[in-house]
């Protein structure tokens, strides 16, 4: 088991480390360019918390995090077939379910770490420019990102089970994500589908106050649980398909 975790880590570590570096640098640059980019609407300047929320948790960083999470999800046996190592892997006395499970464990751990990065970088660097960003806020957003990130990871994982091509799987997962987002905004479906972008940012959510850019209520545990269940379902479907695939 340990060596399978090691294998999964070795296969994803470059993607993960590059993603982490990219997120950290962008977070840091958002902090250090605060003075240049903090103009508000009209004459009223934005508070630092609102600035951070707009540019980080609602803005580009959220989209980048989603894309990076998809990339962490792709890989596995279909990719190994492309690299022609699948025969070596499948000849080991290990079930396909265990191969997928270890990859999922490592991938989810990486998603959690990526989600936690802004929570580490933002409160740590803000004092350097004479500002403060509450760690409790940063960690609350980290929980939201990690949970939704696990679902997006699941999409990437399922896409990589279904599509063998090196680039086909992430593109398919991206289309799936965009498709889901569009469906979640359609009027009759809006009531039933969770808008994962809004969950991550807090937009229109009872636990978030947009005027202050702060999470002020309890995190939506039922919604987060539903997201985690959806993730488990995606991984489960991926495992079932993997078990039946020919390599």
């Amino acid at each position: 088991m340990v060596m399978l975790l090691y294998k999964a880590w070795r296969e994803s570590r470059t993607r993960f480390l590059l993603s982490a570096v990219a997120l950290a640098i962008i977070c840091a640059s958002f902090v250090f360019f605060h003075g240049d980019a903090s103009g508000g609407i009209g004459d009223e300047p934005l508070s630092y918390a609102v600035y951070i929320w707009r540019i980080t948790y609602k803005g580009y960083l959220r989209e980048l995090f989603m894309i990076l999470t998809i990339l962490l999800g792709v890989g596995g046996l279909a990719r190994e077939r492309e690299h022609r190592t699948v025969g070596f892997t499948l000849a080991l006395p290990v079930s396909r379910w265990r191969l997928l499970a270890t990859r999922t464990l490592v991938g989810l751990a990486e998603v959690v770490l990526l989600a936690a990065l802004p929570a580490i970088v933002l409160p740590f660097l803000s004092p350097l420019i004479g500002q403060a960003y509450p760690p409790s806020q940063a960690w609350a957003f980290a929980i939201l990102w990690a949970t939704v990130g696990s679902l997006i990871f699941g999409m990437g994982l399922l896409a990589s089970v279904l599509f063998a091509g090196e680039f086909t799987a992430p593109v398919a997962a991206l289309f799936g994500l965009v498709g889901y987002t569009l469906f979640a905004d359609v009027q009759p479906l809006e009531r039933y589908l969770i808008d994962i972008h809004d969950v991550m940012s807090g937009i229109d959510m009872p636990y978030f106050t947009e005027a202050t850019g702060m999470i002020t209520g309890r995190l939506p545990l039922i919604t987060l649980l539903a997201v985690l269940l959806a993730t488990a379902a995606l991984v489960g479907i991926g495992a079932r398909i993997t078990n039946r695939q020919d390599f």
Partner: peptide, 15 residues
């Protein structure tokens, strides 16, 4: 498979 060893045609191993 615990008692079987397999060497594939490509001999591709984890690069």
């Amino acid at each position: 498979r615990r008692s079987v060893a397999y060497v594939g045609e490509d001999k591709q191993l984890y690069a």
